[in-house]
Design a protein around this nucleic acid. Sequence first.
DNA 1: ATAAATATTGACTATTCAGTCAACAAATAA
DNA 2: TTATTTGTTGACTGAATAGTCAATATTTAT
Lengths: 187, 187
Amino acid sequence: MKDKRTALLESGLRLFVENGFHATPTSQIAREAGVATGTLFHYFKTKEDLINSIYIENKDLLIKALKMDLEEQMTVKSKLRKLFFNFVYWALDYTCELQFFNQFSNSPFIDQLTKEQGMERFSFVFEIVKNGQETDVLKDLPADLLFDVAQGVLNGFVLNLLANRDRVNDLNFLENGFSLYWDCIKG
Amino acid sequence: MKDKRTALLESGLRLFVENGFHATPTSQIAREAGVATGTLFHYFKTKEDLINSIYIENKDLLIKALKMDLEEQMTVKSKLRKLFFNFVYWALDYTCELQFFNQFSNSPFIDQLTKEQGMERFSFVFEIVKNGQETDVLKDLPADLLFDVAQGVLNGFVLNLLANRDRVNDLNFLENGFSLYWDCIKG
DNA sequence: ATAAATATTGACTATTCAGTCAACAAATAA
DNA sequence: TTATTTGTTGACTGAATAGTCAATATTTAT
């Protein structure tokens, strides 16, 4: 029976985003998940263990969403295009999760090991960038730089989209977003 | 005598970044500032008041750094160039402050009003972008979008630079960074 | 059916912390 | 000088909280 565990992960996620880590009592997390405090500590050794689990398990879900319809034989550009739109739609559907990552990815509550495990999962994107450079499709700059800057554009775009939700249905706007992203890194 | 107040702002900044807001006792902030607890509450009504003061006063310092050598008669491109480099050098000198903003700008500890006051101070950059659009130097897209995306590129670049500090002295690298930034928004 | 393992409960505790306060010190004004 | 305001101190308090534990319930294995 894993649904109490899931309920704890979900109420934890929401409450941590709303109130912060230490301002959220474990008792409240448990209450809003509809379980007893003891149950929280049955599934998670400590409160820190809970937030680390929220981080890593949602990273996994994000990665899964990013990989949707991503095929090996695609060109670098269409792979990055797919990644761009997969991320945008994920962000629209999982705003709370996005906020969680924005707020806690650099926080001291998530331990170093967990952060590294989270980063590792993005290595496949890094590989696409490197591949794009080897085939001269992307700019000849350090791959890690292209990666970071592309991520920056994407973050900025998504932030803007979430602040102007009415633009979501403007397909042109989304295409313009991808152009900004692509033009920034294309060779 | 404002130096005890300043010492509190500084130790607060450092400790909040290292341990987080609630994981930092006011007693520790006071101790590391070399003053008594009571003194903290003499200068700041509450612990929240302290973190809001850290936020807004460092925003002011950042804005001042950004405006260095920024002249009204400059072209849009050279203004943005100046802003780019001013931000990069500020980030290198004030890494702790940058981390503070990254970690707390979206946190629930800083109240809405303070956040808005912080945003307001960036309106002069927004004006430069709008001006660039009116003179057809920048892309014809919503000004707020250009602003957010440019900010994203800058963040990504700085993040990358801080992770590879040896690149700081490679002037070519910095110029490449600005090219990424400029090419992304130029019309 | 019985035993063993696993899940669930919530009252309880030892600790921690934000903020107070009354006393004292230093600076400033009259 | 004397009075008043402003700065400084740190022991103290009331409230809140992470995690425990012994009891009970439920599931799984034999």
